[in-house]
Simulated scan of single mutants.
Amino acid sequence: MTARVALGRKTAAAEGDIVVFQIGLRINRLRSLSSWVPAFMSMPRMLRELSQEESSGLLGYKLLFGSLRDFYVVQYWTDKEHLLAYAHQKDKEHRPAWTAFNRRARTGRGHVGIWHETFLVPAGSYESVYVDMPPYGLAEATGVVPVSRRGETAAQRLEATDS
């Protein structure tokens, strides 16, 4: 199903501090299926689990593809505490997937790479504009409001998110 286009100029309805977490996988050896397929398949399970639990702290995410070998996810979180708590919970999908990845990585050294970056973004340090777009990125995670509610320019929107 294609998302409905929101006509006009919109901005994300996000308020306050946010956390942007990017995580990716790079297939270094395509033929080494046993090294990368399990890691590749674990991400949808984690995202489904997080999306189904309202108190997880995950606001939303966007799956992106860099190339035939590169895949990544941009995630938006309420705070770092929720993100870090999920990473360490033994009864959730992440911890067993991480343990299994490390075990496979020892035998298939260099076959698959993973990376992540975490950005703690305080209020007043982000802004957004979407013109004739379906909700995307932060707006998909938090909803949209008319750009006029936050300011017509990027500088005005940055000021508006400062409180």
Rank of each mutant, 00 (worst) to 15 (best):
S34I: 08
T78G: 14
G60T: 06
S51V: 05
W98H: 05
F71S: 10
E49S: 10
L68Y: 05
H94N: 03
L33I: 09
M43N: 06
S55M: 10
W36R: 08
L84I: 01
L30Q: 12
E53H: 01
T78A: 10
A39T: 15
M43F: 08
A105H: 02
T78I: 07
Q52W: 01
S67Q: 04
H82G: 13
M41A: 15
D91W: 05
P96K: 05
E49D: 15
F71A: 12
R106P: 01
F71N: 08
L58N: 14
T99N: 01
S55T: 12
R69S: 14
A85Y: 07
D70V: 14
T78D: 13
A87N: 05
L50Q: 10
H94I: 03
A100L: 02
E93D: 03
G60K: 13
L30T: 08
L50A: 14
L84V: 10
H88D: 07
A85T: 15
R69V: 12
Q52V: 00
K92F: 00
T78M: 11
F101A: 02
S34D: 14
K90I: 01
H88Y: 06
W77I: 05
Y72R: 02
G60C: 06
R104C: 00
H88I: 01
Y86F: 13
L30C: 07
G66L: 06
L59H: 12
S34N: 15
L30Y: 12
L83Q: 05
F40A: 15
S51H: 09
G57I: 07
S67V: 02
R29M: 05
L33V: 11
S55C: 08
H94T: 01
E54L: 11
K62I: 08
L64P: 03
R95I: 00
A85M: 04
W98K: 01
S55Q: 15
Y86S: 11
G57P: 07
V74L: 09
A39R: 11
L84Q: 07
A105R: 06
L30W: 14
P44T: 05
L68H: 08
S55F: 02
R45N: 11
A39I: 09
H94S: 09
Q75M: 14
W77P: 08
A87F: 10
L58S: 13
Y76K: 13
T99I: 00
S67D: 11
R48T: 08
L33D: 03
R95N: 00
V73Q: 12
T107W: 07
D79L: 04
E54G: 12
L58A: 11
A87P: 04
L84G: 07
D91Y: 03
Q75R: 14
V37P: 12
G66F: 04
W36I: 04
Q52K: 13
M41Y: 10
K80L: 09
